[in-house]
Simulated assay, not measured.
Amino acid sequence: GTWVTFGGQISDEVAEQLMTIAYENGVNLFDTAEVYSAGKPSFLVDLDAVLDSLSHQPNKLYSEYKKTCTFSYAFSLCFLSVGLKGSLQRLQLEYVDVVFANRPDSNTPMEEIVRAMTHVINHGMSMYWGTSRWSAMEIMEAYSVARQFNLIPPVCEQAEYHLFQRDKVEMQLPELYHKIGVGVVSWSPLACGIVTGKYENGIPESSRASLKSYQWLKEKILSEDGRKQQAKLKELTHIAEKLSCTLPQLAIAWCLRNEGVSSVLLGTSNPAQLTENLGAIQVLPKITAIVASDIDKILGNRPQSKKDYHH
């Protein structure tokens, strides 16, 4: 899940190092897409790993698809098939384990999206399909359409989830965990680096927030809410120290603790950072109900579920 750094901030050599460290440490989910690094995943080819591919209407490849497809819907059968075949050729793979529909497409009827996903699975290009940044209602609609027409429903949703972004994963999606078995592949566990504490004294030059395209992140960090978040992170550091771990490890383990979260996508820019983040697995058993309650008290943003109102 290093969509910002791979092909942009780091070299292919470092990228390959990161992939190798992840693979050797048991990571078996690598998140890629046809538009990441302009479609050049050279360092992925030699790894026998689980891959998912986010299919959507990419700007750079759009004109090429227009020549092939009569309909220009982002999730039409033609667009999806052409895009996924291209991804598989570049990855030198016969199939991916999961293909994701990235962002809902209001121009394409839901039935066509579900039929398109069912088609690529039935033709051996993918084993399953999932959604990314879809609402619970949209996921439920896809599931209902699949059941109505005997098609294949989505199995997971990619959702942003971290200490300061909790509502969707903790409030909107739990119904789906239990009713239709949809799991969450969460992303941005460190909130674009905010949770690491590195922005406590401003914006470091080598950080993501220093990039021109991430001006919005810089403004967010320097805002009043951003300063309040840094103050809370300072308090959370004391909990991390008691558990003999770092703040990033605590934050990632906290995400993994959620029953609906099947996997957490990490985004790292150097080997030391990745090794530290992978250490979150050892921290997970240390986050007891008491520790989780202490974290909630500091954050003050725990969503109120229906059962909280019953006595």
Rank of each mutant, 00 (worst) to 15 (best):
P109R: 08
L222Y: 06
S55F: 10
E235P: 14
S206G: 00
L51R: 09
A49W: 02
R103A: 09
G39E: 05
L77R: 15
L80D: 09
K220W: 07
A136L: 00
V169W: 07
A22W: 00
T118K: 12
R133H: 12
I281Y: 06
G86F: 02
S269M: 08
G279P: 04
L233D: 05
Y128F: 13
S81R: 12
E235F: 03
G202L: 01
G86M: 07
T268H: 03
Q9V: 04
A292V: 01
Q172R: 15
D46I: 01
F79D: 03
K40I: 03
N270D: 10
A116L: 03
G202M: 01
Y73E: 15
K242V: 00
A272R: 15
P154W: 06
K212R: 12
S72I: 11
M137P: 03
S132H: 09
H238T: 08
I180L: 02
Q230L: 13
K307P: 05
F100L: 15
D105T: 01
K40E: 12
C78G: 12
K242F: 00
K234C: 05
G124L: 02
D97R: 13
Q9G: 11
V169Q: 12
T2S: 09
D296P: 09
N28I: 05
S269P: 06
D296G: 04
Y95I: 02
K212V: 06
M137D: 10
Q230R: 10
R302A: 12
P109A: 05
W187V: 04
C69D: 14
A136I: 00
S53C: 09
T275W: 01
P174D: 05
L88W: 07
D31E: 07
G130Y: 06
R133L: 09
G193W: 08
K297L: 09
T131C: 15
C255W: 04
N258R: 14
G130R: 07
S305L: 13
E111F: 03
E224Q: 14
G197Q: 06
V195E: 02
H178L: 11
A74G: 15
L61V: 09
C245S: 07
Y199I: 04
Q17Y: 02
G124Y: 04
H311W: 04
E138A: 08
H310V: 11
F75Q: 15
Q89T: 07
D294P: 04
K40V: 07
P154N: 10
R302V: 01
I203C: 07
L256K: 11
Q282M: 01
N107W: 08
G279A: 05
I287H: 06
M125I: 03
V261K: 06
K218W: 04
G130Q: 07
L151S: 05
I113T: 15
I139C: 13
Q215H: 11
P41L: 01
K297D: 13
Q273D: 02
T32A: 13
S213N: 15
C156W: 03
S63E: 10
S72A: 12
S106V: 14
Y62E: 15
I180F: 08
S186L: 02
S263A: 15
P104N: 13
R147I: 03
L18S: 00
W134N: 13
P303H: 11
M171H: 14
E138Y: 05
Y95V: 00
K242P: 00
M125F: 01
F100D: 07
L250V: 04
E205W: 04
I287T: 05
V264G: 10
L256F: 09
K60V: 03
M171Y: 13
R257T: 10
E157C: 03
K179D: 12
